[in-house]
Structure formats: C-alpha cells, structure tokens
Simulated scan of single mutants.
Amino acid sequence: MTKIAIICGSNRKQATTAQLCRHLEQVLVNKGCQVIFLDLYSLPLPLYSPDVECDDANLAIFKNGLNEADGIILATPEYHGAPSGVLKNALDYTGFAQFDGKVVLSASSTGGPVGVSSLQQLQTIVRNVHGINCPEWISIGGENRIFTPEGEPANQKTRERVLHTLQYFVKMVETFSSIKQ
C-alpha cells in the first residue's frame, strides 16, 4: 500500500489550506493509499536552530511520518509570495533522510488568484533535500477556495484538476518507490 505524508503548513484554525489537505487525504484514501496527516497547526514545532539539539515529541512524530512515507505532499498558504513560516520552519528540521528519492507534490491555497511563488520556492527546497518534484502542482486561489459541507472544492474544475494531479502524483510515487526498493 502506497503511503503518502501530507504536511499541512498552515498555522490558522479554519485555514483553506487545511480544507484542501483534508480533501486530498480523502481522495488518496479512496484511491487505496495510506495517508499520514501532519498538520502543523495541531502539531506545532519549536523554532529551528542548528545550535540546539531538539528532542521534541512533535518533531519525532513529524520526522517519523516523513520517514515512513513513499511520497510527500507539501501544502501551504502563500504569505507575501512565500510559503508559510511554520512550513519553512518544519522543513528546516528535515533533510536527505526524509526526502531523498521521494516524489513530492506542492500545493497552495492563497487569497490571490494563484500561489505560484510559494510553489516555486517549495520546489527549490525539495531539490536541495534530494526529493523529486512532481511536475504537476495544485494551486487554488480566490473564489476557488470555497469548499462544500462535504469537504470538496465547490468549483467542478478545481475538483477535476485536483483529481488529475493526484492521479499523476500517485502514479509517479508508485513508479519511483518500486525503483528504490
């Protein structure tokens, strides 16, 4: 069974990033994947410092989830053209051990039309920890950030785009996972 870790990189209680992540989780579970959901709002991490050895329990959960995953989804709101500070802080704790050879899908939910700047920055981080960027990404913005009571994007084209992107991503994860083993 393919294991996917979803990192929800928002630090806001009712974040559309979290709604998007929960929708991604449901689609992946329906496709037969096992999902490790790492929500940085409910799993806060201490501020990263390379000078301090950190034995935080939340950090152990976070790193173990990534270590177990075959593929990773990084989801963020976009603040001032960049990923959220909580996601960047969490990623500063990671490295090759968590990402090397794993396919990574980047996703954003932004108040503007699209969150391209944050996605490009996430892809740069992924390259630097030897992850494999999925060439597709998910970016929802503006009125496309509305979700139904069932947790799906209200916009049909957004739902279709998410489904297409996740199918592509899962196929990539399965292909690269089989090569790695």
Rank of each mutant, 00 (worst) to 15 (best):
K102R: 14
L45W: 10
L43Q: 13
D100T: 13
L91N: 06
G95P: 03
I72N: 01
I61N: 02
K88T: 11
T76G: 09
C54V: 15
Y41T: 04
N64G: 05
P46M: 09
A57I: 11
P46N: 08
K102I: 07
A82Y: 07
G95K: 13
F96L: 12
D100H: 14
L43R: 08
F96N: 13
Y93K: 06
D51G: 03
E78L: 00
F99I: 06
P77Y: 02
A90M: 12
D70V: 09
A97C: 02
L40C: 07
S42W: 01
V52T: 12
A90I: 06
F99S: 05
G81E: 02
A69H: 03
P46V: 11
P83E: 12
S42M: 11
Y79T: 05
Y93I: 07
L74C: 09
I73R: 00
A75M: 09
P46Q: 11
K102F: 04
I73D: 00
A60M: 13
L45Y: 15
S49K: 07
T94V: 06
D51P: 00
A69C: 13
I73S: 05
D70A: 11
G71K: 04
F62V: 04
A60F: 10
P77L: 09
D51I: 02
S49G: 12
P44F: 02
Q98E: 15
G81R: 15
A90E: 00
L40K: 01
D70H: 10
P44W: 08
L91M: 12
S84A: 15
L47C: 11
G81V: 09
L66T: 02
A69D: 05
K88D: 03
S84V: 06
G85N: 15
P77Q: 06
D70P: 09
G71I: 08
V52W: 10
P83N: 06
T76P: 03
L59S: 08
A57G: 08
V86Q: 02
V52Q: 09
K88E: 00
A82L: 14
Y41C: 03
K88N: 07
L91D: 00
V103D: 01
G101I: 14
D56E: 07
N58H: 09
N58Y: 05
A57E: 15
A75R: 04
S42D: 14
L74H: 05
D70C: 08
N89H: 13
I72Q: 03
G85D: 04
F99E: 05
I61H: 06
N67Y: 07
D70Q: 11
E78V: 00
F62S: 10
